[in-house]
Design a protein around this nucleic acid. Structure first.
Lengths: 207, 207
DNA sequence: GTCTATAATGTGATAGAC
DNA sequence: GTCTATCACATTATAGAC
C-alpha cells in the first residue's frame, strides 16, 4: 500500500536521523537504525540501497530544516539592525527545536567537505550566489550612512554566526565547564539569547 | 633502548593525533595510525593495549595543550577588560596553532560525555572549582563599579567563548558558505580576530 | 621491541522465500 | 514489502617467532 510504504520510509528516516545525529556517519550502525525504526535491517537496504545513500537523505533533510529561511533573511532588503535581530532570533529558535543539527553539519562537513557540498547543492539547487553577500551589503550601507562604526563585515558576520550556533553545537562542552547540568536552566539561557545576541551586537557597532 | 622506546611512543602519539583529530574515535583506524607512524599495527597494541586507551592518551594530550593556560587566565586577579583581551588573544592563538582540537573536543564530548569527563579529570586533577566563576567575579566587580552595563555574566562568557572557538571549529562550514576557499586569507582573518574579538566585546559592554 | 600470522568479532550488503 | 539466512570483508586484538 502506498501509505504504508510512505510510513515505513518516514519511520526509517526518523530513526536514521536520531542515530546519525548522535553518532555521525562513521559511528552510526545500520542495525541500530533498524532497531529504532522497528523494522528488519534488510528493509533499510530495500528503501535506501546503502548506508551512504541513507546518510545523504538524512543530511539533506536536516539541511533543509534551517537553510532556506536563513538564506532568505540574509538577502532580504531590510535595515541592518532589523536583519541582525531577525537572523539571531530565527536562527537560535530553529536550533532550539533541532539542537543536534549544527554539530552534525559542522562535523560531517569537516569529515568530507566535497561530498557534503554535493548534498548541499542537491538540497538548495545551487551555491553560486553567496547569501553572505546580502549581509555584507547591508553592513556597507550603514557604514556609508554613518549609523555604525567601521567594521569588517566578515568579522561582524562571523561574530553573529558564532554567538548563534556555538552555544548549541558546544552545549555539552559549555555545560561541562561552566553550568550546572540542568537541562531546563540551559534551555532558558538559550531562549534569552534570542534577544541578547542582537542587543549585544548592536550595542557594539552602533554610533 | 630507552630513547628508542620513547621515540616510538612519540611517533605513535603524533600519528594517532592526526588520525583521531581528523576522523574521530569511531572513524579512526588502527591500521592508518600504524601506517602514519611507520610501524607495525601490533606495536600499537604493545604500547597502548587498545584503541580506547590510545584515544584517551590523545585526548588527554590535546586537552593539556590549551586548558591550563585558559584556566589560569580566567581565575587571574586582573581587571575585566584586560582579562577579556588576554583570554581572546591567547585562546585564538593556541587554536591557530592547533586548529583541529576544538571540534575534536566538542564532538567527542558530545559522543560520550561521562567517558570524556573522566579523561579531563585525569588531565587537570579535578573539576571541582569552576574557573568560569573567576570570570563571573570580574564581571560583577565592574558592574558594581559602574564601568560596564548590567549583563548576565554567563551570556557574556558564552559570547566570548563562541567568538573565539567557533571560527576555528566551524572553519570549513564558514569557508563553504561565505569565504573563498583560500587558506591564507582565512588565516589572516583569524589573526585579526585576536584583537577584533575583545574590541567588539568591550565596545558592547563599556559604559 | 618488533615482526608475521591469525583469531574473533562486527558490519554493510545481498539472495531468496513468502 | 518484509522477513531469515548468509556472504564478504573490515577491524580490533592476540599469539608466538625472532
Amino acid at each position: 500500500m502506498a501509505i504504508l510504504q510512505h510510513e515505513t520510509e518516514t519511520k526509517i528516516l526518523d530513526a536514521a536521523e536520531k542515530v546519525f545525529f548522535n553518532k555521525g556517519m562513521s559511528g552510526a550502525r545500520m542495525q541500530e537504525i533498524a532497531d529504532k525504526a522497528k523494522i528488519n535491517k534488510s528493509l533499510l537496504h530495500y528503501y535506501y540501497r546503502s548506508k551512504e545513500k541513507l546518510f545523504r537523505a538524512v543530511f539533506k533533510s536536516a539541511f533543509k530544516k534551517f537553510a532556506p529561511k536563513t538564506i532568505m533573511i540574509l538577502v532580504e532588503n531590510i535595515p541592518l539592525f532589523e536583519k541582525i535581530e531577525k537572523f539571531s532570533s530565527s536562527y537560535i529558535d530553529i536550533f532550539i527545536k533541532h539542537p543536534s543539527i549544527p554539530l552534525f553539519v559542522i562535523y560531517e562537513l569537516n569529515r568530507n567537505p566535497k561530498g557534503i557540498v554535493n548534498i548541499i547543492v542537491d538540497a538548495i539547487g545551487t551555491m553560486e550566489k553567496n547569501p553572505v553577500q546580502g549581509f555584507k551589503k547591508s553592513v556597507y550601507d550603514e557604514i556609508k550612512k554613518g549609523t555604525i562604526i567601521e567594521i569588517d563585515p566578515r568579522q561582524l558576520f562571523v561574530n553573529m554566526l558564532s554567538m548563534c550556533i556555538f552555544p548549541i553545537a558546544g552545549r555539552v562542552m559549555i555545560e561541562t565547564i561552566g553550568f550546572d547540568r540542568n537541562k531546563e536552566e540551559y534551555n532558558k539561557f538559550l531562549k534569552e539569547r534570542k534577544t541578547e545576541v542582537s542587543k549585544f551586537i548592536i550595542n557594539s557597532i552602533k554610533k
